[in-house]
Amino acid sequence: MKLLVFGKTGQVARELILQGGAHEIMALGRDQADLSDSEACAAIIAQSDADAVINAAAYTAVDKAEEEEALATIINGDTPGAMARACAVKGIPFLHVSTDYVFDGEGEKPWSPNDPVAPQNAYGRSKLAGEEAVRAAGGAHLILRTSWVFSAHGNNFVKTMLRLSETRDQLTVVADQIGGPTAARDIAKALLAIAPQLGARKGGTFHFAGHPAVSWADFAREIFEKSGRDTQVADIPTSDYPTPAKRPLNSRMECSDLTKDFDVDIPDWREALDEVLRDLEA
């Protein structure tokens, strides 16, 4: 299958390239596809001979989005909509990566795909705008909401914790935000498995996140234990670590629909963490 991927250096995009296997992957970086130019991205699809399109690129600077919501909304909202419309015209599936930030982040119940949305920050609003635009395009599509992405590439929590542990004996980490760490490699594998299955009567909005649910603090402890670091973790509440953008306390996600509809297993993030640590060690 020939797949056109928007994104080249991001965590999921890099794993799509690495995990492509029998698929032919055409990955576009910023120099080839400027996501702030919606129509230019749509034109790339119109001129492509791809069998499906995956949007693995986004504006992901959550705090900076509070100051740049207009730009974030173009990149995360307008452009995915333009891409989806271009795919609909060509009659090819469009796969789009989204986030649990479209919810209000309250409570303890895992979020289901059909739960009411109520984003609490600019980034979440911009991603919700993208979801709505993709659905409105009317073509075969998959919106894959995920959370807490990590890998051996780019900037993420695992690499930050390892870097800080090199110079500190103890770190304070938020313990009242709960979610499912998700390896970019697992997200890529899921997208690659789903793409050939998408059709007019199969698709929609799904959740994909690692299990079991864990706090950031306990995630950090697991990182240090598995990597042989002696760094201690002190739990703190979110209120002790203020950020420009409000973070969700509850990022738990109900993912069973993805297994039922596409036979995609939900990964254990602890196993994925072992793989990422081995990659970083190598």
Score class of each variant (00 low, 15 high):
Glu67Ala: 15
Gly124Arg: 01
Arg30Asn: 11
Cys87Arg: 07
Lys90Glu: 00
Leu18Gly: 09
Lys226Thr: 05
His207Phe: 06
Phe219Ser: 11
Ala27Gly: 10
His96Lys: 01
Glu69Trp: 06
Leu198Ser: 03
Gly204Phe: 11
Val173Asn: 03
Leu192Cys: 06
His211Met: 14
Arg247Ser: 10
Phe206Trp: 05
Met26Gly: 10
Trp216Ser: 12
Pro80Arg: 05
Lys202Gln: 15
Gln120Tyr: 11
Gly91Pro: 03
Ser126Lys: 06
Asp274Leu: 12
Pro113Val: 12
Thr167Lys: 15
Tyr123Ala: 02
Ala282His: 14
Thr9Tyr: 11
Ala52Gln: 07
Phe262Cys: 02
Ala82Thr: 01
Gly91Glu: 09
Ile266Met: 04
Thr231Pro: 05
Lys109Asn: 13
Leu280Glu: 06
Ala140Asp: 09
Asp268Pro: 03
Ala61Asn: 10
Arg185His: 12
Gly21His: 08
Thr231Cys: 15
Ala200Gln: 14
Ala220Leu: 02
Ala86His: 01
Ala217Ser: 15
Phe208His: 06
Asp34Met: 00
Ser147Val: 03
Glu132Ser: 13
Pro116Cys: 06
Ile25Val: 13
Gln19Val: 08
Ala118Thr: 09
Arg270Gln: 14
Pro244Asn: 10
Ser98Met: 00
Leu192His: 02
Gln120His: 11
Ala217Asn: 02
Pro212Met: 08
Thr160Lys: 15
Glu106Ala: 15
Lys159Gln: 13
Phe94His: 12
Ser215Ile: 11
Pro242Asn: 10
Glu67Gly: 12
Ala86Lys: 06
Ile54His: 00
Cys255Ala: 08
Phe150Gly: 04
Leu3Phe: 03
Glu281Phe: 12
Ser151Ala: 13
Gly138Pro: 06
Gly77Leu: 08
Pro248Ala: 07
Cys255Met: 04
Arg145Gly: 02
Ala61Tyr: 10
Asp115Ser: 13
Arg30Glu: 12
Leu144Val: 07
Arg135Tyr: 09
Arg247Asp: 02
Gly204Ala: 10
